[in-house]
């Protein structure tokens, strides 16, 4: 997505996230965002493949 895109920010979640990361982590934003993306990808892939169910079924800490 180009920075020149005419879409309002709410329709560019990836770009907004990058801006948020920049504000939180400054010059280390890209590194942290990369590590987080890898972690989330592993989580999503494992969940797709293994279809884990919540345990316990009812939350303990309501």
């Amino acid at each position: 997505v180009s920075w020149r895109s005419s879409l309002p920010p709410s329709e560019r979640p990836g770009e907004r996230r990058t801006a948020e990361m920049k504000k939180l982590y400054g010059k280390d934003a890209a590194k942290i965002q990369g590590m987080e993306a890898a972690m989330q990808l592993t989580f999503d892939r494992n969940c797709d493949k293994k279809q884990p169910k919540y345990w316990p079924v009812i939350p303990l800490n309501l």
Partner: peptide, 19 residues
């Protein structure tokens, strides 16, 4: 948290999510 081989008091659940 996505985990495998969860040893619960009622036996092993092969794949699980913990809140």
């Amino acid at each position: 948290l996505q985990v495998s081989d969860l040893e619960t008091p009622l036996g092993v659940q092969r794949e699980a999510l913990l809140r």
